[in-house]
Structure formats: structure tokens, C-alpha cells
């Protein structure tokens, strides 16, 4: 197996774990009323952890179909599709086919960082909640990021072949 395909395989494994592993932990607070909520409904202040697939599932369950589809498209289908094209391109010997595949990869790749943007948005939103609620990134998010970094190296290697 060549280095490019090894990087694609690493990126795929990291992506798989990043999608299902814990990504975001939310620590809810209710400001000055935190003590009161702890007495009357302590389960409301329970720390909750979500994975990317867990968030998508929850969005489906709460009938937020549009958001669920957007998140699924940008964080699941688009990165998998991009890696599939990388694998395909890495085995091509015909330079015309290789160049056209690379063009498609660049087009698909535009969508696959949206998940990182969505995570950042969630964290900023939660941190701006009244009551001091906080959100922390978990190891799933880091694996996802490493998957993206691996795929960037793949992209550089394929681009250098183009030249």
C-alpha cells in the first residue's frame, strides 16, 4: 500500500471514530438559580455528551429534519465521498481522468469542513447562554480534526502528482 492510500485509510478510520465518539460535552448552569434547579430537577443540570451521529439522530427525533440533513450531508456524506474520490484518484494512471477526478474532489471538499464550523457555532452559542452554561470539545472532535488533517496531506500529495 502506498503512502497516499495509507493516509486515506487513517483518515477513514479517524473519521469513523470521530463521528461516533463523544464530540461535545455540555455543562448546563442556571445562573443564580442553579442551586434551586439542583433541588427541584437535578436531571436538568446533568452533564450531557453528544457524538456527531448522536446529534443528527436527536435532530431527526425532534423533527428538525432540515438541520439533521444539513449536518449529515456536511459531516458524514461529504467527507466519506471525498475520501472515496481520493482512493479512486490515487489508483488512476490516466492523467486526464486523474485531473477531472481531482476537480471533483476539490468541489466536494468545499463542503466537508462545515462540521467544524457547526461545532464552533454550537460552542459559541452555548457559551453565550445566560446562566454560565459551558461546552467542551471531547476526543471525538479531535479525531475528526485529525481525519481532516490527514485528508489535507492526501490532497497535497495528489496535487503534487498533478504538477
Amino acid at each position: 500500500m502506498n503512502v497516499t492510500r495509507f493516509l486515506i485509510a487513517c483518515s477513514s478510520l479517524l473519521l469513523g471514530l470521530g463521528l461516533i465518539g463523544p464530540t461535545l460535552t455540555i455543562f448546563p448552569k442556571a445562573g443564580d438559580l442553579t442551586w434551586f434547579i439542583k433541588i427541584i430537577a437535578p436531571e436538568e443540570l446533568e452533564v450531557s455528551t453528544y457524538s456527531i451521529l448522536g446529534v443528527i439522530q436527536k435532530l431527526f427525533q425532534t423533527n428538525d429534519i432540515f438541520l439533521a440533513m444539513i449536518l449529515a450531508m456536511f459531516s458524514v456524506f461529504s467527507p466519506v465521498l471525498k475520501l472515496s474520490f481520493y482512493w479512486h484518484a490515487s489508483g488512476l494512471k490516466d492523467s486526464n481522468k486523474f485531473n477531472s477526478t481531482l476537480q471533483i474532489i476539490h468541489y466536494v471538499g468545499k463542503f466537508s469542513m462545515a462540521e467544524v464550523f457547526a461545532l464552533a457555532l454550537i460552542i459559541v452559542t452555548i457559551k453565550s447562554f445566560p446562566g454560565g452554561s459551558t461546552a467542551n470539545l471531547e476526543w471525538g472532535a479531535y479525531l475528526f480534526t485529525f481525519s481532516v488533517i490527514c485528508s489535507m496531506f492526501v490532497s497535497f500529495r495528489l496535487d503534487s502528482r498533478k504538477g
Partner: peptide, 11 residues
């Protein structure tokens, strides 16, 4: 299909 299989395997 291999990257898809690897993603599914890891998950």
C-alpha cells in the same frame, strides 16, 4: 468503497 468500509468498521 474501501474508505466507506473503513469508516463503517471504525464506527
Amino acid at each position: 468503497v474501501i474508505p466507506l468500509i473503513l469508516v463503517l468498521l471504525a464506527s
